[in-house]
């Protein structure tokens, strides 16, 4: 479904990604693990076509993504680590992706209600989104992405800095979304989360993919010394 070949990305003089090659299959949860600053966010931004200025090849469904950036953006939705809320109610926030697609209002009502339920946000429906807590905002951000009928969701540290209760709701929902046949790319520094959710995973360090594999295999039996270093030295706190 997604294939990256030798992707390179620089911000000025800083190299963010170096010769990154990846394949992500339809319907899987693919985890990108690594410490902060390793290049996870940049990778996700390229997948979502929020960055189009990079070297290398990006194929989406076998075709060059940059040539069809708009279409690709319609099919991949990214959820940012920092849950930016639009002004307005929770409902307005979740409905945005449908409104810009000119979905009719009955349909919007139905789909948004369903998402709010999934993320246990019903009682916040008419509240100002910006007045919610961090965890609630993150849930709104997820709902706002999942309400769109995209093929791929790129989630950037969806549970970083969240309390266990919120994290649990979000993880549960990610699994539910996968069951609907969606593809999920999950960037996380949390090894356990990746292990719990992902089918396959890649370890990224200093902008380079060090090792890719079945997540079980990667976590229990890492081959590369740097991956080993990351996994065995994982900070439990």
């Amino acid at each position: 479904m997604i294939e990256l070949r030798n992707i390179e990305k620089k911000y000025g003089e800083t190299v963010a990604l170096k010769k990154v090659s990846l394949r992500i299959e339809r319907g899987e949860i693919f985890a990108v693990i690594g410490n902060s600053g390793a290049g996870k966010t940049t990778l996700l931004r390229i997948l979502s076509m929020l960055e189009t200025d990079f070297l290398g090849e990006y194929l989406f469904n076998g075709k060059d993504a940059r040539e069809r950036a708009e279409e690709v953006r319609g099919r991949i939705t990214m959820v940012f680590q920092n849950p930016v809320m639009f002004k307005g109610s929770v409902f307005d926030n979740v409905a945005y992706g449908l409104r810009v697609r000119n979905v009719d209002s009955d349909e919007i009502e139905k789909k948004v209600e369903e998402m709010l339920k999934l993320f246990r946000l019903e009682r916040f429906r008419d509240k100002s989104a910006r007045k919610l807590s961090g965890g609630e905002k993150q849930r709104v951000a997820m709902a706002r992405a999942f309400v769109i009928d995209a093929d791929v969701y790129a989630l950037d540290e969806p549970t970083a800095n969240l309390d266990p209760e919120n994290a649990r709701i979000i993880e549960k929902t990610i699994k539910k979304i996968k069951e609907r046949g969606k593809t999920i790319v999950l960037a996380t520094h949390n090894l356990f989360q990746a292990k719990r959710l992902a089918d396959r995973a890649a370890y990224i360090e200093s902008g380079q993919i060090i090792e890719t594999g079945e997540s079980k295999e990667l976590f229990e039996n890492p081959k590369h010394p740097r991956t080993q270093n990351f996994i065995y030295g994982f900070d439990f706190f």
């Binding site: 929020l50 939705t77 930016v84 769109i148």
Partner: peptide, 13 residues
Amino acid sequence: REIRDLALTLGAN
């Protein structure tokens, strides 16, 4: 910046 990225990824033209 924030709003552009967000609206862009949510499919706005």
